[in-house]
């Protein structure tokens, strides 16, 4: 079975996101009572994922 580097990268990103989306708010941001702390962090992480998604699918369908 041949899984491309791009797909493998997505799995690695998923593991990375799973870790930081829990660890950072619990260790660094949780005690800061501001919108720019946990709220902004999770929202920014979601926007980053949408950007990754956009870059990933941008070339879909071009090789056919």
């Amino acid at each position: 079975m041949h899984i491309t580097m791009k797909t493998k990268t997505l799995w690695i990103i998923a593991v990375f996101m799973a870790v930081i989306s829990v660890v950072i708010p619990y260790t660094i941001l949780g005690d800061i009572p501001r919108f720019r702390a946990s709220y902004l962090f999770w929202t920014a992480l979601t926007i980053l994922t949408i950007l990754i998604g956009y870059l990933h699918i941008r070339d879909w369908g071009r090789s056919r």
Partner: peptide, 24 residues
């Protein structure tokens, strides 16, 4: 409070990643 935001945003992050991997 903000924990609810984390709960829902993590759902979105993983749904996007799973769609990228599994939808095709």
């Amino acid at each position: 409070g903000v924990g609810a935001v984390g709960f829902e945003m993590i759902y979105i992050i993983f749904t996007i990643l799973l769609l990228l991997i599994f939808a095709p």
